[in-house]
Every structure is written in C-alpha cells, then in structure tokens.
Computed example of a mutant assay.
Amino acid sequence: MRSTAGSTERTGTARRPDPADRVRRFSTAERWVHRTTGWLTLVCLVTAACLYLGPLAQLVGRRHVMVFLHEWSGILLPSPALLGLFSADFRADLRRLNRFAVYDRQWLRAVRRGRRSSSARPAGKFNAGQKIYAGWIAGAVLVMMFTGLLMWFMGLLPFISRTSAIFVHDLLAWAIAAVVLGHMRKAFQDPEARLGMRTGYVTRSWAEREHPRWLSKDGDAGVTGRTHEV
C-alpha cells in the first residue's frame, strides 16, 4: 500500500501530520481521560472474565485479588470523566456528544444504506455512531456501578434480590464487552483516528473527509466558537 503524508503506512499505522497541515483534535486532558477510562474498563472486563469463566478462573487463581481489582476498577471508572470536567475542552466535547443534529440522522441513514462518501456521511467533531456509543456506555457504567454496589452491600436495598442484581450485572457485562470490542475494532480500522487520540493532532485532509462539518463555520466547532489549529 502506498502512503502519503498523514495516510496509512504499510505497518497499519498513520504518519504524524505535517506541522503545517495538522489540526488539534484532543487536548492532553481529554487524551488522559480516554486513556485512563480505557485501562480501567480493560481491568474491569478482564477480572470479570477471570471470575466468571471457570477454566480462566482455574488458570489465573488468586480469586481474592481478582475480586479486589474488579470492584475497585469498577468504582473508579467514572473518576477520569469527573476529573475531566475541570478541562474546558473536555466540557466542550461533552456538549458536542450530547448534541444530536439533523446531519447525524443523515449519517445514520447513510450507514444503513452503505454509503461511504463524506457528503453522504456528514459529521461534526464526533459522528452519530460515536455519540450513540458515548451515551450508551455512560448509562451502562452507571447501571453496572449500581448493581455492583447492591451485590457488594446487599443491605442497601433489601427489597431487591441478589439474584436480580447479579442477572442484570452479568447480562450488561456481556453487552459492554461486545460494544467495547466493536469500538476497538473500529479504532484499529482507522490509524489516523488512533493517532489523533495518541498525539492530539490529525491531518486537515482526514478531518475534512471523516468529519467535514467539524472545521466548517456551520459545524459543531461553533460549540466553543473556535477550532483548534496549529
């Protein structure tokens, strides 16, 4: 595969954008929120597998350590986002994620019909799929925390049976695992999107192709009243 500046290389990675042709996509605070949340989610899912799957539990052992890591990684999971609220960039992106525009519905229709052009899939800084994923995972984490605390301290709400809490917790855990794997799969299909999360910068050509309304005056860059460029 040939590669040009900012495109995918043979190794499946993206070159760093040329300083003269790059746009800041994420601040340092936003990248740390994403990275820390990702690691906590990974620990939570791996320890859950070690507790839930018999063969894996026998292979790993140390059940008390797995329980400790699982409980505390779950409790700490919302903390990166809460700390991220101190960042103006992070708060601006939360507003973008909570704002479902007309063109987001157009993006969803284009996905259902298999259309791939940027004109058929208009998107601001975040496309409709990313907005749905963010909203769903935020709600799922809250439910997982609630059911997990019920299992940990069953005296909190004695009228809710432990069996009910376990059922909801386990069922949602499988759903979260599937959704997170889908999220990772999409990320690995787009090396420059990963580069943007790793370094904070992407090429302008990628931004205009994948998120054409982000840098335009009528796009959701207007949430902060500016775009981040170098």
Rank of each mutant, 00 (worst) to 15 (best):
S3K: 09
S3Q: 12
A5W: 13
A5E: 09
T8K: 11
T11M: 11
G12Y: 01
R15T: 14
R16G: 07
A20Q: 15
D21T: 09
R22A: 04
V23S: 03
R24L: 03
R24M: 13
R25Q: 07
R25A: 02
A29L: 14
E30P: 04
R31K: 08
T36E: 08
G38P: 04
G38W: 03
W39Y: 10
W39R: 07
T41I: 08
L42D: 01
L42C: 06
V43M: 07
L45T: 05
L45S: 06
L45A: 07
V46R: 05
T47A: 03
A48H: 01
A49C: 13
G54L: 13
L56M: 04
A57Y: 01
Q58Y: 03
L59N: 02
R63L: 02
H64C: 06
V65H: 04
M66D: 01
F68I: 02
L69S: 00
H70K: 11
E71F: 14
E71D: 13
L77P: 03
P78S: 05
S79A: 12
S79R: 10
S79Y: 09
L83Q: 12
G84Q: 09
L85G: 01
A88Q: 12
A92C: 15
A92Y: 07
R95C: 09
R95S: 12
N98V: 06
V102Q: 08
V102I: 13
Y103R: 05
Y103V: 03
D104K: 01
R105V: 05
R105K: 14
Q106N: 08
W107G: 00
R109P: 02
A110Y: 00
G114D: 11
S117H: 07
A120F: 05
P122R: 01
P122T: 00
A123R: 00
G124C: 04
F126G: 01
N127A: 06
Q130S: 04
I132K: 02
V141W: 13
V141Q: 15
F146A: 12
F146Y: 12
T147A: 11
M151C: 13
W152M: 12
F153A: 15
L157N: 08
L157I: 08
P158E: 08
S161Q: 14
R162A: 15
S164C: 12
V168R: 05
A177L: 10
V179W: 06
V179N: 06
G182C: 09
R185K: 13
R185L: 13
K186P: 01
K186W: 10
A187D: 00
F188H: 08
F188M: 14
D190M: 03
E192I: 06
A193F: 11
G196T: 02
R198L: 11
R198N: 13
R198H: 15
T203F: 09
T203M: 14
W206G: 02
W206V: 02
A207S: 10
E208A: 04
E208K: 12
E208L: 14
E210G: 00
H211A: 00
P212F: 00
R213P: 01
L215V: 03
L215F: 05
S216Q: 09
S216N: 02
D218H: 14
D220M: 00
D220T: 01
G222W: 01
G222S: 09
G222V: 07
V223S: 06
G225D: 11
H228C: 14
